[in-house]
């Protein structure tokens, strides 16, 4: 049984980390685009907000129709869910970089890309990181739903518990999810605090 648990935890982690990796890349890119192209910001932020409001069960069902059963579908679902906090925090962070610094960077002769990578992203990194943290902690619990569309992870253990009305099995699947969420939240909050302190 403990072998199944360990496997569940590892699969769960793998699904969530792949999803967060993708949505960090996509989210930061969309955040930068909405910062650069003024009229696109409300469109991009609006779409990510709408995505967030779709109930997870409905979203997964829709995705299942398109992408079929399996891990890929839950990863896509998680990416869509994780997008909003990352896009929004990237956008807010970039906007919040002091105009004097942007002016100085422009006046020094930095191109748009150089300003982004040397000044703007490093300075908004604490906020971007906090967006990633929120996305990650959320995804850990949403990933449990994956069992309904044939994905692996701790959801399978919980589901088995529900079916056999076995409280112990349900808890065995649920507690690691909670512990992981709390551990990541704690650890990443610590890093976040240090980042913010350094930025000052």
């Amino acid at each position: 049984m403990s072998g199944a648990l360990l496997q569940g935890i590892l699969e769960h982690m793998a699904i969530v980390s792949i999803a967060i990796l993708i949505s960090t890349v996509v989210g930061v890119i969309f955040g930068v685009i909405s910062y650069w192209v003024r009229f696109l910001d409300s469109v991009i932020l609006g779409i990510s907000e709408i995505l967030q409001t779709i109930p997870s069960l409905a979203l997964l069902a829709l995705l299942m129709i398109i992408f079929g059963l399996g891990n890929i579908t839950i990863i896509i679902g998680l990416v869509l869910y994780a997008l909003l906090p990352i896009v929004r925090n990237t956008y807010t962070g970039l906007k919040a970089v002091s105009p004097h610094l942007k002016d100085a960077a422009r006046g020094m002769g930095m191109s748009k890309m150089q300003r982004l990578f040397k000044i703007e992203i490093p300075l908004s990194f604490p906020l971007i990181f906090s967006g990633i943290k929120i996305a990650l902690v959320n995804s850990l619990s949403v990933a449990v739903m994956g069992v309904l569309i044939g994905a692996n992870g701790l959801g399978t253990i919980i589901y088995r518990g529900i079916q056999s009305r076995n409280m112990e099995t349900i808890l065995m699947g649920a507690i690691p999810v909670v512990v992981m969420a709390l551990a990541f939240d704690f650890g990443m909050s610590k890093i976040e605090k240090r980042l913010i302190k350094r930025a000052k």
Binding site: D103, M108, S111, A199
Partner: peptide
């Protein structure tokens, strides 16, 4: 961009990059 690299620029709010 190249023009600005040949002209020094000092601003009021100091504008050193904190990172």
């Amino acid at each position: 961009v190249e023009l600005r690299r040949t002209i020094g620029y000092v601003i009021q709010q100091i504008g050193l990059f904190p990172n």
